[in-house]
């Protein structure tokens, strides 16, 4: 436990000083409330016509606050996967690409422990961003609802809970990209894999397999594919999706323990 405490302290300091969270944190926590409030306002303004209006049609009706928080969940489900994937590509791929990983050998703090701490720190950062983004959306939505004398009831709180859970699930789905970064020893190849998985997810959803595909589950569950697609996502699919993070962390720790030719 002492080695893990040391590793967590070291990795947290390194992450705080890293460029990635400095750039990604304001984007992640700012984008979600802005997109949620903005897209719903746009959909209800009548200012958008044609294909844009069709895409925003689901946001044009229904309880205002609940819709805000459903949109927040949909945006978060994708945004945290992309942010987490980029972050893990940098955190695990860069030291292997530039040779710094060689210095992690022969330390009193084992490499596997450092890898686990790195996963925990990056995942903790993404989770904190999710919590702040949902909290800001809740606050902004409450203000918007109050100004329009719209209700802010249990359905809105339930949508907030689902947005929070979808965001955390999406964050966990990023962990396998630490495995890819370690295997390829390249942050760029990892970003390529991330883009590939996002594209693959679209295909899987199109052919109707999304309800069981972990990378599609958070988006579908928050209503991106409509209420029927959301209802198709069951507890088992959510459990499988949640299991991706611990499995990914376990694999990356094993990879770093067995690392050679560095």
């Amino acid at each position: 436990m002492s080695a893990l405490r040391t590793a967590l302290r070291v990795e947290a300091l390194a992450w705080r000083r890293s460029t990635v969270p400095r750039l990604a944190t304001p984007l992640l926590v700012g984008l979600v409330p802005l997109a949620s409030i903005g897209l719903v306002a746009l959909a209800r303004s009548g200012a958008v016509a044609g294909a844009g209006a069709a895409k925003l049609a689901d946001y044009a009706t229904g309880d205002l606050a609940t819709t805000h928080l459903e949109v927040a969940g949909q945006v978060l489900a994708v945004a945290v996967l992309v942010a987490g994937g980029f972050a893990l590509a940098a955190a695990f791929g860069q030291p292997l690409a530039d040779g710094r990983a060689g210095a992690y050998f022969g330390l009193a703090t084992p490499r596997g422990t450092l890898a686990l701490a790195r996963c925990v720190v990056v995942l903790g950062w993404v989770a904190a961003c999710v919590v702040v983004a949902v909290a800001l959306t809740l606050g902004a939505s409450a203000v918007a609802a109050a100004s329009l004398s719209a209700p802010f009831g249990p359905a809105a709180w339930a949508a907030a809970g689902r947005a929070l859970a979808a965001g955390l699930l999406g964050a966990g789905l990023a962990l396998p990209f630490a495995v890819v970064a370690t295997a390829t020893r390249s942050p760029l190849a990892t970003v390529g894999a991330l883009i590939g998985v996002v594209a693959l997810t679209q295909v899987v959803v199109l052919v109707g397999g999304g309800a069981w595909f972990p990378y599609a589950v958070p988006s579908l569950w928050t209503g991106t594919g409509g209420p029927d697609a959301a209802a198709d996502v069951g507890g088992a699919a959510l459990a499988i999706t949640a299991a991706v993070a611990p499995v990914g962390a376990g694999v990356v720790v094993a990879q770093w323990r067995r690392l050679t030719d560095v």
Binding site: L13, A14, R17, S18, T19, D98, G99, R100, G102, A103, Y104, F105, G106, L107, A108
Partner: peptide
């Protein structure tokens, strides 16, 4: 044993951001 070893072979144990 690791506590008693120090090494620099190629890149050192240095984080450029710190």
């Amino acid at each position: 044993a690791a506590r008693r070893l120090g090494h620099v072979v190629g890149a050192a144990l240095v984080d450029p951001a710190l």
